Amino acid sequence: MISHIKLNEIKKLSDSVTLKTNDQGFEFIIIDHQNFDAAFTLHGGHLIHFQRKHQRPLIYLSKTAAFNNSKAIRGGVPICWPWFGKPNQEFAEPLPSHGFARISKWKVTCINEDNQGVNIDFSLASSEASKQLWKHDFQLTLKASLSDFIELSLVTENTGSSSFTYSGALHTYLHIANTEQVNIEGLAEDYTDSLDAGKSKKSPTLLTINAELDAIHQVNQGDLMVNDGGNQRKIMVTNSGNDSVVVWNPWINKAASFADMPDDGYQTMLCIESAITGQNGVLVEAGQAHTLSTTIKETAMK
């Protein structure tokens, strides 16, 4: 929920969708549909909240997240693009970790809604400012389809005359009841451990969370299932266009080091990321496009 954020209505964009700002002028897209509540920020094209009516939130947002135009927001679904993690050495320093899309201002380009849900598109295009960080011409579109589940598709279009490669992620923070009551099914067995110099390791079939975790799993062939026992629900995550799945939880010490996360924030969040992390990234030829997506559905435990 984002009820702790005081917002001022600026403009109705459709029956369910409203542009609002906080007292500092930071812009939010608030969706109050008969089936769900959701919120985005134009900073980052960032989904920060989704909750079906009379259900628990599905997306985690830190209660101490910073809302300004220079910092990425802690929680939601940050868009890591056009690189994942630290930039390649071909780029000059300093450059933002996880790219510039999540700290850039996006535009709403399309809204369609009906009794079932809302489809809303956000766009970000290359500019003189972006070319100071990444030299390529592009059109980036986040297509969000919200109903009783979430579907996010990030479309990368090459609008230039030469090919480029990119990497990135839909860095989804899932809201869970408690890490001690969660396990994950369906992850590929092979993964690299970012906390142990990228060593290759094997994952158990049923992954539990009891320490800091930053694992890059090979792309899985089916759905992922997060068993959120404390909320008596299952969260199914289906990804496409990715080469890997990143599973992340900062645990006690790292959460305590974050100014924009409560010390106990690690207990109620778990990142399951549809990601492109391979060294070669994804090649997008001139005039072509590539789509990275994630779909998130919840069902009650039987």
Rank of each mutant, 00 (worst) to 15 (best):
D243E: 06
D228N: 09
I31R: 01
T205W: 00
G44K: 12
T291Y: 08
D190S: 14
Q116V: 10
K254I: 07
S62Y: 06
K302V: 10
R233E: 09
N22P: 02
D196E: 14
S62K: 13
K11T: 01
T64G: 00
I79V: 15
N69K: 09
K63L: 00
A72N: 12
P262I: 01
H43L: 09
C271V: 12
L270G: 04
S104Q: 02
S3I: 01
K234A: 07
T294K: 00
G230C: 03
Y173C: 07
S163Q: 12
N227E: 06
E157V: 07
S200I: 13
T159A: 08
I29T: 13
Q221I: 01
S14P: 14
H54N: 15
Q288T: 13
H171P: 03
I111Q: 05
F164Q: 08
F164L: 12
L95C: 12
D228F: 08
L187T: 06
V118C: 01
S14R: 06
G230Q: 12
L146V: 01
H175Q: 11
F28K: 09
A256H: 10
S162R: 13
E9I: 02
A65E: 06
K6S: 12
N88D: 10
N112L: 09
N239L: 14
P57T: 05
M225S: 07
M236C: 08
I150C: 09
Q24F: 12
I79L: 15
F40M: 10
A256E: 11
Y266E: 09
M301D: 04
T21R: 07
W81R: 00
H290T: 03
V77G: 08
S194L: 15
Y60C: 03
E9Q: 13
A215K: 15
N115H: 15
D260L: 11
A256L: 06
M1N: 08
N183V: 00
L47G: 00
V108P: 01
A275L: 08
T291R: 13
E157G: 00
S127Y: 12
K105L: 11
F26M: 02
S127I: 14
M269C: 12
P250D: 08
L58C: 04
A259W: 04
A129P: 01
Q139L: 12
P262T: 02
T205Y: 05
K63I: 00
